[in-house]
Design a protein around this nucleic acid. Structure first.
Lengths: 225, 225
DNA sequence: AAAAGACGGATTGTTCAACAATCTGAGAGA
DNA sequence: TCTCTCAGATTGTTGAACAATCCGTCTTTT
């Protein structure tokens, strides 16, 4: 590595270093608790209580709120406060509109990226399925779809997909969870990798698009009940 | 319109009202000046000077900074300040990575949306071309690509595309502008609409993808000089 | 004379406390 | 039962303060 390369590396490091340290930390704390389901959809995030619990100032807390709001994880109602987002039917439609765009496109047009990560995730999902590990299956499913988009190699598409998947987790938390929901998708995902491996990316994209449509319909039916 | 619909409408209004009013207003002010080229890439946005010029508090100004930072319009260097973003070659590659994903997908999979808006923009672009109106052509070109993605009807894809196009404008501001750059794309866009109208969306998508590749190469060559 | 190190001024990062604006809920009155 | 009013509570916004970091200049060393 030349000296110039070291300089460039140091500069990149410096540019990506955390600068709003505390605010981001608070946002991460809240995010993890929301995604773990400890803060349920609809819950109000009272400023004063959180401020004291976290030991930060109101300004810092509100900075964290802004970040979570941008991620669609919380809802802001003016002069009323911040609430854990409670995805509606329209939100679910929007989520799947994005997914039916991003994921088939990734299957079709991210050709040169390796398939090994996908195969590894399918393997893990099968292991979780035989072990009856529901949350393991759910996690592997999310990992699979994230990895699919990740093959495009775009930072912005990755973060869009991360946001959408985070909202998906909120959807699961906001309805009575059906333990068997993720089961059929283990083999569906395996089939997609199989088709891609065989070079038939068009068929893989079609199959994926159809199954995203099925999943959407299933969630819409569940949420409208 | 029924009473319930009026209620829903009012609720939607209330939810979309500006809540961080001042901060968003400041962000909009800065954004418009940056995109108009009045604040050139690389310029430092000094806090104290802007604070006084805008008549807002430092806190509010910094809130606007974080918003612009999230849009990749400004760069933050810890303890050094905020600068108007200066897109690198890697940034251009990332922009086109996203565009070659979003736009062909929109051509292929946003089938039922009307074509009239696209045709109107092509007409406006031709008028600007015959009038020799460079910035009119540039604007129509951006409008065209935004409208293309807009047909998908997804709020998030729209805002991603808006961000990418905003960064494109920064690219144009950060290099010696070639007045003839936008010219050939007027007829290329017309051809895309033509192919879509004929029902041959696959051909339209291929054509679009190829021409995005050409544009990327052209910009990369210009920026590396 | 050139390079390294130390110092002071200026700018940014972070927090706190106060005031203004708005909403919620209870009670009075028709 | 409904509407209106008012007090308490919560949020939106701001200004000021302190700590941390950086830049330019001067001094020291070789």
């Amino acid at each position: 590595m030349t000296f110039d390369e070291v300089l460039a590396d140091l500069q990149a490091q410096a540019r990506t270093t955390k600068h709003a340290e505390t605010g981001l930390w608070v946002a991460a704390q809240l995010r993890s608790r929301i995604e773990a389901g400890k803060l349920k959809p609809g819950s109000k995030l009272a400023e004063e209580a959180l401020r004291e619990a976290l030991g930060v100032s109101r300004n810092t807390l509100r900075e964290a709120f802004t970040a979570l709001h941008a991620e669609h994880i919380v809802t802001r109602i003016p002069n009323r406060g911040v609430f854990v987002a409670h995805p509606t039917a329209d939100d679910i439609r929007e989520i799947y509109r994005v997914r039916r765009f991003l994921e088939p496109a990734a299957v079709l047009w991210a050709g040169e990226a390796p398939l090994e990560p996908l195969e590894a995730i399918v393997k893990a999902a099968r292991a979780a399925a035989t072990a009856g590990d529901i949350s393991g299956m759910a996690g592997a499913n999310q990992d699979f779809h994230r990895a699919l988009v990740n093959r495009a190699g775009s930072e912005r598409l990755n973060s869009l997909m991360d946001q959408v998947l985070a909202e998906m987790r909120l959807v699961f938390h906001s309805m009575a969870a059906n333990p068997a929901f993720h089961q059929p998708y283990v083999e569906d995902n395996a089939r997609i990798v199989e088709l891609m491996d065989a070079g038939d990316r068009a068929a893989a994209a079609d199959f994926l698009s159809a199954y995203l449509g099925r999943a959407e319909a299933q969630l819409l039916a569940a949420v409208e009940r």
